[in-house]
């Protein structure tokens, strides 16, 4: 599902919740990294919870409310029910989902995020931060949206979990043609899966590009530079060694070995 923002204006006192004549397209079937823009604002604009001051949003093809899935950094805010099972059934009723086998759908949503059905009876407030995030994502996957917006999702998750979810996002994109919009200030975690990036600052689109343009210094005026990129740039500057634009530490290590051995 393609999302086209055209001359969008939104006013807010918060820098990440305002947009100043923004034109940008979140292409379909892609993983977008988005920084400086609240994922919640994007969700609210798409689901008409928030009205823009001016401009247009085109969604292609036209969809339903349940086509927009959102997982926030503080999932407790999003839950309205006591247990995980109740929350999933709430979505079923809320979005008028007509599933033949609801229990199977619930189990498979939990399985996709690496949880088993024992979580169904768990009280939401008894879950740890990472469990909350996983359950929150499972709830969204249960209603099977076309677009998945994840807001600072990686915060509080450890490496193994982050890698697991990156694989899941890739699978959702490749196998199910879903759009994933990752809103975060930490691009390091997503270097190997993102297709495009867009960076906003105070409502202005400052820089955008593809996964081939991750060594663009302008990006890192606004967000923290991934350590591998910082390191390679420093090697070039300090020693004049022209290492390629690696984003994988294993490739970097091999390149360093080759360079040192050749000398």
């Amino acid at each position: 599902m393609e999302i086209i923002l055209q001359d969008i204006v939104c006013n807010s006192t918060k820098a990440d919740k305002c947009l100043n004549k923004v034109n940008y397209t979140f292409k379909e079937n892609s993983i977008n990294f988005c920084s400086g823009l609240s994922g919640r604002l994007l969700r609210d604009l798409l689901t008409l919870k928030k009205q823009r001051e001016s401009g247009y949003i085109f969604v292609n093809p036209n969809g339903r409310l349940s086509d927009i899935g959102y997982v926030g950094n503080n999932p407790l805010k999003e839950f309205t029910c006591k247990t995980v099972a109740e929350q999933m059934l709430y979505f079923k009723d809320n979005y008028h989902l007509k599933y033949n086998n609801v229990q199977e759908k619930i189990k498979s949503a939990l399985l996709m995020v690496g949880l088993d059905e024992s979580y169904l009876s768990r009280v939401i407030t008894s879950l740890s931060t990472s469990e909350l995030k996983k359950v929150s994502l499972a709830c969204v996957l249960f209603y099977n949206p076309q677009v998945l917006i994840v807001d600072y999702f990686e915060k509080g998750l450890n490496y193994k979990d982050i890698e697991y979810f990156k694989k899941l996002f890739k699978k959702l994109k490749i196998k199910y043609n879903r759009n994933i919009i990752i809103c975060s200030d930490n691009i390091s975690n997503y270097l190997d899966i993102l297709d495009e990036y867009v960076i906003f600052n105070n409502g202005v689109l400052e820089v955008k590009g593809t996964n081939k343009e991750l060594y663009n210094n302008v990006i890192y005026k606004y967000i923290e530079e991934p350590h591998i990129i910082k390191f390679i740039n420093l090697v070039r500057k300090k020693k004049g060694v022209e290492l390629d634009n690696y984003i994988d530490i294993k490739e970097l290590i091999k390149a360093i070995y080759r360079d040192v051995e050749n000398k």
Partner: peptide, 27 residues
């Protein structure tokens, strides 16, 4: 990670946690 992996290649023999010191140790 870099220190340990480069250690396996025999390029570094301790853990270094400063970028500049790491670069000087390699080259």
């Amino acid at each position: 990670d870099l220190s340990i992996q480069l250690g396996y290649y025999g390029l570094i023999n301790k853990v270094i946690i400063d970028d500049r010191k790491m670069i000087d140790a390699i080259w």
